[in-house]
């Protein structure tokens, strides 16, 4: 038991992930998701869609030269993580993600079946 406990506490404590702020908008043909990920570069970002769960994971880095001491902190840089469930039909092959100025944008095209269709009214 004691050994078990020691083994467990020796494992590195997993860093608590930061939950990024997210906006989601819907247009006629697409859904756009925006996530604020300041400090995250493309190399440190993973966006995955597994079944109906979209997962965003990113590691933020700050480039502070050696020899500086932190005097004041209002935010922390670390891991970002957010998982969102997609409950509507989207065109999975058409999903595109871009990262610019620390903001991730994911475009999810609506599946044909989910697009609103204008019904023609036939003249009699």
């Amino acid at each position: 038991m004691a050994r078990e406990l020691a083994k467990r506490t020796a494992e590195p404590v997993r860093e608590r992930a930061i939950r990024p702020d997210v906006d989601i908008i819907e247009t006629d043909t697409e859904y756009h998701l925006y996530a604020d990920l300041p400090g995250v570069s493309e190399d440190n970002l993973d966006v995955t869609l597994e079944k109906e769960v979209l997962t965003i994971k990113g590691k933020a880095e700050e480039e502070i030269p050696a020899g500086y001491n932190q005097r004041w902190a209002e935010y922390v840089t670390g891991w970002y993580e957010r998982r969102l469930r997609i409950t509507e039909e989207v065109d999975r092959e058409g999903i595109k993600a871009t990262l610019k100025n620390g903001v991730l944008k994911v475009v999810l095209p609506k599946a044909e079946a989910a697009k609103a269709k204008k019904i023609q009214i036939a003249h009699e």
């Binding site: 604020d36 990920l37 001491n69 932190q70 005097r71």
Partner: peptide, 18 residues
């Protein structure tokens, strides 16, 4: 904002995504 200093000066970092 975060503030970092040494004898030569300071670095202020600001989270401004987008």
């Amino acid at each position: 904002v975060n503030l970092w200093t040494n004898e030569e000066g300071a670095i202020v970092t600001v989270e401004l995504p987008g």
